[in-house]
């Protein structure tokens, strides 16, 4: 039955090559922790992606309760955390996941750096990876404001002040981030849009490029 459905779809859409391409590519021994335990350092990239998936899923559930305005944001997070079933767990996953994602990303970057895997022909994928790093930092910065507690507010205020001290461009960056002259109602709406739409879109596009490049070029050989 399932087989017949698959064949029916495959006959029309030719989906077999799509998944076979992913399934059949070879994983070399030197990155496989089942053969060498020390190869776990090659897992950091995959685990970073795993955390990103956790972030996206938990973030989607948070968005069911979160209200991005200065009157209700804090109350909605409080409600989510204290009243909603499993709310503290879901918010905990997103909150701690943000730090864990940065840690894993950092470890992955160091692994690539120390094994010299960014060298020819993988230069471009290193650049894509660095862009992913910046997007993740942007996600961290914008997400920090959203609970709208004192910590969030003052950290963002300081962050914007630092950006504003950049010569020439500073005031423009600050206005862009704040959406006005102060950290306030416009800022939280703006950070919400950046955190939930712009940065995740950029992140997914860059991750797609990252993975396509890995498939094209293969994992770098053993040292």
């Amino acid at each position: 039955m399932l087989r017949a459905i698959y064949d029916w779809v495959d006959e029309r859409l030719d989906i077999t090559p799509l998944w076979r391409d992913v399934a059949d590519h070879e994983v070399p021994e030197h990155v496989n922790p089942a053969h060498h335990f020390s190869a776990f350092i090659y897992c950091f990239g995959g685990l970073t992606f795993f955390v990103v998936v956790i972030q996206i899923l938990s973030g989607m559930f948070l968005a069911m309760y979160y209200v991005p305005d200065i009157i209700n944001a804090h109350a909605s997070v409080k409600f989510l955390q204290n009243e909603v079933a499993m709310g503290a767990i879901v918010r905990g996953m997103h909150h701690w996941g943000a730090s864990v994602a940065i840690v894993m990303l950092f470890l992955h970057t160091l692994r690539v750096f120390f094994t010299g895997s960014y060298k020819h022909p993988r230069e471009f994928n290193w650049v894509v990876g660095m862009l992913i790093f910046f997007v993740m930092l942007g996600l961290g910065f914008t997400g920090y404001l959203l609970p709208w507690d004192n910590k969030a507010y003052f950290a963002t205020k300081v962050g914007v002040e630092i950006a504003a001290s950049v010569p020439y461009l500073g005031p423009y960056i600050a206005t862009f981030l704040q959406g006005g002259d102060i950290v306030g109602a416009q800022t939280i709406a703006r950070f919400f849009a950046l955190h939930v739409f712009f940065f995740p879109a950029a992140l997914l596009a860059l991750l797609g490029a990252h993975f396509i490049l890995i498939r094209r070029q293969g994992i770098s050989g053993p040292l």
Partner: peptide, 10 residues
Amino acid sequence: EPPLGDIADP
């Protein structure tokens, strides 16, 4: 538990 402080007070 993820921390949540008091509502922002400029």
